[in-house]
Amino acid sequence: MYAYKCDACGELHHPKHFVCRKCGGTDFTETPLEGEATVLTWTKVYNLPEGYMKPYLCFVIARFDNGLTVSGQINSEQPVTGQRVKAVVGVVKEGVGRDFYGFIFEPAQSVA
């Protein structure tokens, strides 16, 4: 998973944009997006869409220490707002012939 850093002003984007939101620049460099983040909000969803054979799944919006904010799944039964988490890239959805990768957060202390 990558952040897209504007070559002109350094503003980070995720997902990819073609024009920088800050300076209008159009050239970006991919930088790996990883490490720790803080949970801003979370939910536990019980009515999952077609394709998920699970009774529920937890999601978060989390802010990386570099300021970038993303959505992701979280491996936790009961996330907490303000909790420190670590980003792991994993299969978020199994597709036919193509799996989808994305952020799956883990509570930071459990990833030593």
């Binding site: 909000t41 394709g51 799944l57 999601f59 959505s71 994305g102």
Partner: peptide
């Protein structure tokens, strides 16, 4: 659940939809 999936197709095709994020999920958060 097919309807939930159908409505979720309006979320971002890379940064949201594949995660299983749905409109109720965003509303919950």
């Amino acid at each position: 659940w097919e309807a939930t999936d159908f409505v979720a197709t309006m979320s971002h095709p890379e940064a949201e939809y594949p995660y299983g994020l749905t409109l109720p999920a965003f509303a919950g958060m």
